[in-house]
Design a protein around this nucleic acid. Structure first.
Length: 184
DNA sequence: TAGGCCATCTGGTCCT
DNA sequence: AGGACCAGATGGCCTA
């Protein structure tokens, strides 16, 4: 995984930086801003840090303190949801990688981008659908020009096949279709 | 150096 | 209530 300067990136204003009636803004003479507002939590085996400091430095020498609920609790919750979000995005990326490996494309050193992967996958599905439709006269006696109708009929046919034959993989289904079209 | 792509953080909303 | 999902923002890396 690429190094992305974890912990240093600040997107929108963080909750600790936004105007909030529950916060007071007070100066802290002689103390470090970072020491005063930083919280670290161990998540997923690594330490993650949240800071209440704006990296532009416009609030140097000040500290925000939550009066009612615990700042640390909110930090912990935020870090936990960050971790979950990372895991979710990793799962999404794994799915993209699986998709890359499933679709045929010209192999280059450069891996397919996400948008390229989706576009190729869409085209690949369309091509397969066209091929299958051409082979499936027995199942789809009236070929229609409307691609969408054909596709939904094909799906219907596949679902019917699953009901009759149980869970089989697509290649088995295709060979059935092929033998249908050969026989008819 | 600009632009594309990406990882990450974040807060809002939806769902269970 | 808490987690999942989503979209905006930001900054790093890479390439033309």
């Amino acid at each position: 995984m690429k190094s992305k300067g974890k912990g240093s990136k600040r997107g929108r204003q963080s909750w600790a930086e936004q105007d909030d009636p529950d916060f007071t803004l007070e100066t802290e003479p002689g103390s470090s801003e970072q020491e005063g507002s930083e919280a670290s939590v161990r998540l997923g085996g690594t330490w993650r840090t949240l800071r209440g400091e704006r990296h532009g430095g416009s609030r140097v020498g000040t500290r925000r303190r939550r009066l009612h609920s615990s700042t640390k609790e909110r930090n912990v919750r935020r870090l936990e949801s960050n971790e979950r979000e990372r895991q979710r995005m990793h799962k999404l990326n794994n799915a993209f990688q699986a998709l890359r490996e499933a679709i045929p494309h010209v192999k280059t050193d450069k891996k397919l981008s996400k948008i390229e992967t989706l576009t190729l996958a869409k085209n690949y599905i369309k091509s397969l659908t066209t091929i299958i439709l051409g082979m499936s006269n027995a199942c789809l006696p009236h070929a229609e020009s409307d691609m969408e109708t054909n596709t939904s009929r094909l799906l219907q046919c596949y679902q019917q096949h699953l009901q009759e034959e149980g869970e089989e993989d697509l290649s088995t289904y295709l060979s059935h279709i092929h033998s249908f079209s050969q026989g008819s």
